[in-house]
Amino acid sequence: MDKGSLASALGSASVFGQSQFAFTRGNAFEARVKADGGAELLRLVHDGLDRGAEPPAEATVHLPDLSATGPEGRAARTSLALREATGAAGAWTLLDHPMLALEVAGSPAFLEPDAVVVHPDGSWTVVEIKSFPMLDGSADPAKVGAAARQAAVYVLALERVAARLDPAPRVRHRVLLVCPKDFSNLPTASAVDVRKQRAVTGRQLARLTRVEEIADALPEGVCFSPEQSAEELAAAVEAVPATYAPECLSACELAFHCRARSREAGAVTCLGRPVRAELGGLSTVEDVLAAARGEAGDPDDPAVAALRRAAGLRAEALAAAGGVTGCH
């Protein structure tokens, strides 16, 4: 589903999109990392994860052709290449843009990691190439976190492929993150342990089987197509339960639409999830303010009692500071 055009059609255009400068640079960097038959990339894998193995410069290196028709065909080709590579003991194999299939909520999703490397010992490593810099060995933690979660999905998908082989090869839980070094376009790499992200994603995928149940619960005829009228679309999107939080704004094209709905409903979580922590069962702005003013709410409810004390203290402080009006 193209959430970006859906958002535009709903009248809540998002701020998403990629600068062509970033795009060009990202592509140039990935090409540079994979240049010369992946020599540099394999060197980074060897240095970062498998120093005990024979250096790729001195070993046999395979670069299987993965082209095929359609995602299913490419996924099948990838599985075959992985099997062959795992059998080819002592060699390094670089799979450039393999295709992996992962069942999500009953239907196959196709995933395309930047690269997968098969080590001489037959184990597999996911490689993620990103264009944000590693400066003095550290990188933006939010971006590394996103890359780790992405890589964890690839690891899970690879494990499904591995499970069909006998003996099942090891899928390494440390992935290799390749980024530009400092202020240059020279690649550098860091191993990232994705066990946590893998465990969480695995549990979430298991739970996503319930998405079908959500789909079943939707009214018949719900359909998201940007060609529909804004009202029809809004009605369709409304039918899907969504929990808006400000974090959505940087992650989802529909966030501004969800925010507008959430604000209309007066949800306090518009101000951030943690806001609810001390409000107990109160979830709307008006309910909270009414409780704070003493117009509603059970005074024995600690949340209500705390709100009234907070409102009183705030009013007292503002009055002390010089007649600024606070709570009325």
Partner: peptide, 12 residues
């Protein structure tokens, strides 16, 4: 389950 785990990750 509802709480998405989107922790930042520090290299190293």
């Amino acid at each position: 389950d509802d709480y998405p785990s989107t922790e930042p990750v520090q290299l190293g």
